[in-house]
Structures are given as C-alpha cells and as structure tokens.
C-alpha cells in the first residue's frame, strides 16, 4: 500500500544520504578530537604526574597572580599555585564524581524503569506516580534538598547528583521497555510459542538496554556539570581541593584581576562535557543507523 511512499523515501534519502555521508566525514573529525580529549582526561585522572611536573598544592606566594605565560601555561592563583597543574590534578576528582554519580543514577533508574515497564499495570502506575512527584523537583533542586539534609561533602555531592538525575533516566528506560514490549518482534516471539521468561531475557531486556550506553555517556557529562555546580556554590567539594568546580568557586573573588582563574577550570569542564557528549551522540548515530549499515 505504501509502494510510492517508499519510492519517495528512496528518492528523498538518495539526496539525503549523499549529504549525510559528507556530514559524517566532517563529523568524524569531531569524534576523533573528542576521543583524544577523553583519553587525555583519563590519563590525567589515572596518573596526573605524567602530564604535569609540579604538585597541585605547592604554595609560592612570590608567584601569585601570574598571567598565562610559557612558565605557567594557565597562570597562577592567589597563593601562587600553578593553574595548569591544578586543572590536571582536578581531572581525577571531577571524573570520578561524574562517573560514580552516573553509575548510581543508572542503577536506581534501571531498577525503577524496568520494574515499571515489566511489572504490570499497578506497579507501573505506582512507580510512575512516584517519578512524577520526583519530577516536581526540577533540575538541581533535588540535589539541593539532598545536600540540605545530609550536609555538604564529596559523598553527599555524588549521591545528590545521582538522586537528582535518576528520575529522568528512569522515565526514559521505562518508555524504552514499554516500546520494546509493544514491538512487532516481541509479538512475533510470543506467536512462535516462546515463554514470557525467554522473551523478557532474550528480547525485551537486551533491546531496552541498547540505548543505555548512549544515555550513560551523555549522563557523565551532565553529572560533571551538576557536581561542579554544587561545588561552585560551596555545597560540594571544598575549595582547597583542585576539583574544577571548587577551583571556580575559589577564583570568584578575583575575576576582575585574574580572569584565568575562572576561564580555564571552566573550559576544562566544558571541553570534557562536550567531548563525552559528542561521543555519546556518535554512538547514538551508530545505533540508530543500524549496525554498520
């Protein structure tokens, strides 16, 4: 019945694939850069001394507020500490916080989402209501509430970010499970006479989890930003630590004299997030476009 519609699609995409192929080429460059950056940050997180010679907390009052130069690539802070070294050393904490927060959020979200999607009408309605209530604390608010109750600190920061982002993921996972559950291939599997347990383990769960890689990758970027937001507000990691958000918080009073104290740690967060996100998008495109099609 859709003979000619498919033709329209054949002709249309004929034009589109051509354009897309070119776009993909230029896109690849971005993916390579992102991958490179992620490797760099990972190295910095694993062994920062490979990338920076000095120590992050060597105070040298004689060298305070030096603008970026060859000796101090990214300048120095009020105590004369090298900003580049601190940014490199900060990678570990920021990355670990981002990864941990995402991991916790994902675990919560998978439990809630899969239970809702597979648990039948009442369980689904219950979890859905619960998520709806959590959604009434938008953005960082749930995280704020969490910090207000349990106090500031790294652990609460991680859990706060996880708790704040979990409802969104849970809803996406639930939707995914429901979509797969209603799909033609699940029906086909039942029609073949497969038992529900087999269909759930062989079709529903694996297919519903497929987009999670992408979700998690992008989630790490978001977690890093959220965590650094908390630190920036003085509600997370405390300033002497070289965590990126905390560095921004510490530099706030000197914005006028020493712009590099604010620009560079922030740039680290932005680039790191951007790299992780564009990798996530790349994976998504690969998923959507079919495998190796």
């Amino acid at each position: 019945m859709v003979t000619s519609l498919t033709e329209a699609l054949v002709v249309g995409p004929g034009i589109e694939t051509h354009v897309r192929r070119r776009r993909r080429l230029s896109f690849r460059l971005g993916v390579w850069l992102s991958a490179l950056l992620v490797v760099f940050v990972t190295v910095a997180a694993v062994d920062p001394s490979l990338l920076a010679s000095g120590a992050p907390d060597t105070i040298n009052l004689g060298h305070s507020f030096i603008a970026p130069s060859w000796s101090h690539l990214l300048g120095t802070d009020p105590s004369g500490r090298d900003v580049y070294t601190r940014v490199i050393y900060g990678a570990r904490q920021s990355l670990v916080i981002g990864l941990l927060a995402t991991l916790i959020a994902m675990v919560i979200a998978i439990i809630l989402g899969v239970t809702a999607g597979l648990g039948g009408r009442w369980v689904d309605a219950l979890i859905n209501r619960f998520l709806e209530v959590l959604f009434a604390f938008p953005g960082l608010l749930l995280a704020f509430l969490f910090v207000a109750i349990f106090g500031t600190g790294v652990v609460t920061e991680v859990v706060a970010v996880a708790v704040g982002s979990a409802p969104g993921y849970a809803r996406m996972i639930r939707g995914q499970v429901l979509a797969v559950k209603g799909s033609g291939y699940v029906e086909a599997a039942y029609a073949l006479g497969h038992a529900p347990r087999r269909v759930i383990s062989r079709q529903i769960v694996p297919n519903a989890m497929r987009p999670l890689v992408v979700l998690a990758t992008m989630g790490v970027g978001q977690s890093i930003v959220w965590a650094s937001s908390l630190s920036f507000l003085g509600l997370g990691v405390a300033p002497p630590s070289p965590e990126w958000g905390a560095m921004l918080d510490a530099g706030r009073d000197y914005t006028l004299q020493a712009w590099w104290l604010e620009i560079f740690p922030g740039l680290a967060i932005v680039l790191c997030t951007l790299a992780v996100t564009s990798l996530g998008r790349y994976f998504q495109q690969k998923l959507d476009g079919g495998i190796g099609a």
């Binding site: 354009v19 070119r22 776009r23 230029s26 970027g221 930003v225 650094s228 937001s229 920036f232 921004l248 706030r252 914005t255 712009w259 604010e262 620009i263 922030g266 740039l267 967060i269 932005v270 997030t273 951007l274 996100t277 564009s278 998008r281």
Partner: peptide, 28 residues
C-alpha cells in the same frame, strides 16, 4: 551545508555550557 552545520553545532555546544561559567564569561 555550512550554515546548517554551524547552527546545529552551536546548539550542541551551547546546550552543554555550565551556567556558572557562561555567566562569568559574559561578565568578564
């Protein structure tokens, strides 16, 4: 091609910006 790529690239970039940093940049 270039205009579209610029537009969508700018959106992706801008959407990932942390507000505190953007605020500081604008202020500076």
């Amino acid at each position: 091609r270039y205009t579209s790529a610029f537009g969508s690239g700018a959106e992706i970039f801008v959407a990932g910006l942390p507000q505190y940093w953007l605020g500081i940049i604008l202020m500076v």
